[in-house]
């Protein structure tokens, strides 16, 4: 049993292990990084230790994605209830418009309102990540077999019972797939926050570009890549195999 559990979770564990190892023990990589930048004075990113940057990165993505899930799933549920159905076309259109807004532009527009730091990138990620969640939740709730809805009503289930016992469980795989897309895209996009003063894994990348130090860029990029892989493989284990 524990063996089976271990193999099931092995992929995310491996990625997470690698991620933490690199974040904590970056010194081991010095020779490798040295190879990419033979002439630079330093190859290890100095400013703050990478673990802190990693945690900040995770924090930003978690806040933005958490809000996007609450708002996105909530809005999609509301507009598929009889009372909110009038708002359905508007919400669907707005979500698809949100994806059209380039995150850099939103980031830039958020700075005058929210100031430099972490909040602009959270707003940009929230807006950018909303569409996959809203779109998939709507698709999941609207795509249910009408016969199942009819049977649920015909058996005397109330609105809340139908939502919690029938609609959400059946739409869950599609909703989770939307959240997965949203989160993985946001992990990569969050790096942009470094351009408006959020300290996260984008910081080494910006520093590398400014100083012409490829080793810095590599450290940021590899950690972000590993984070994305770890989260993505976690999601793929969460999605139920049965269908």
């Amino acid at each position: 049993m524990s063996m089976a559990l271990l193999t099931r979770w092995s992929a995310p564990l491996v990625w997470l292990g690698l991620l933490l190892a690199l974040a904590v023990g970056g010194e081991w990589l010095e020779p490798l990084l040295r190879w990419s930048e033979p002439e630079a004075r330093r190859v290890l990113y100095p400013q703050a230790d990478l673990l802190t940057l990693l945690l900040r990165h995770v924090q930003v993505v978690a806040i933005a994605s958490g809000l996007a899930v609450v708002i996105g799933v909530g809005a999609a549920i509301l507009v598929t209830r009889p009372g909110g159905r009038d708002f359905l076309p508007l919400v669907a259109q707005f979500a698809s418009m949100g994806q059209t807004f380039p995150p850099v532009a939103v980031l830039a527009l958020a700075v005058p309102v929210l100031g430099f730091g972490t909040w602009p990138i959270i707003v940009a990620l929230l807006l950018y990540g909303l569409l996959p969640i809203v779109r998939n939740t709507l698709a999941g709730l609207e795509g249910l077999d009408p016969a199942i809805e009819e049977a649920a009503r015909g058996m005397g289930m109330g609105g809340g019972q139908r939502l919690w016992q029938v609609e959400l469980p059946l739409a869950a795989p599609i909703i989770l797939a939307g959240i997965r897309t949203s989160v993985t895209v946001n992990i990569a996009t969050a790096a942009l926050g470094a351009t408006v003063g959020a300290s996260n894994l984008g910081a080494p990348i910006i520093a590398g570009i400014v100083n012409g130090n490829t080793a810095y860029i590599l450290q940021g990029a590899v950690l972000i890549g590993l984070l994305a892989l770890a989260v993505d493989s976690l999601f793929s284990r969460l999605l139920p195999a049965r269908q």
Binding site: D145, I148, E150, A152, M155, G156, M157, L170
Partner: peptide, 28 residues
């Protein structure tokens, strides 16, 4: 709702809940 729980209802496409076992479906 109360009325519908007192009246049996069967339809062409069955409308069985795909995420529930047969026993759970019958016991709804």
């Amino acid at each position: 709702r109360i009325l519908r729980r007192r009246i049996g209802y069967a339809i062409q496409s069955t409308g069985l809940f795909p995420h529930w076992s047969v026993a759970r479906n019958i016991g709804l």
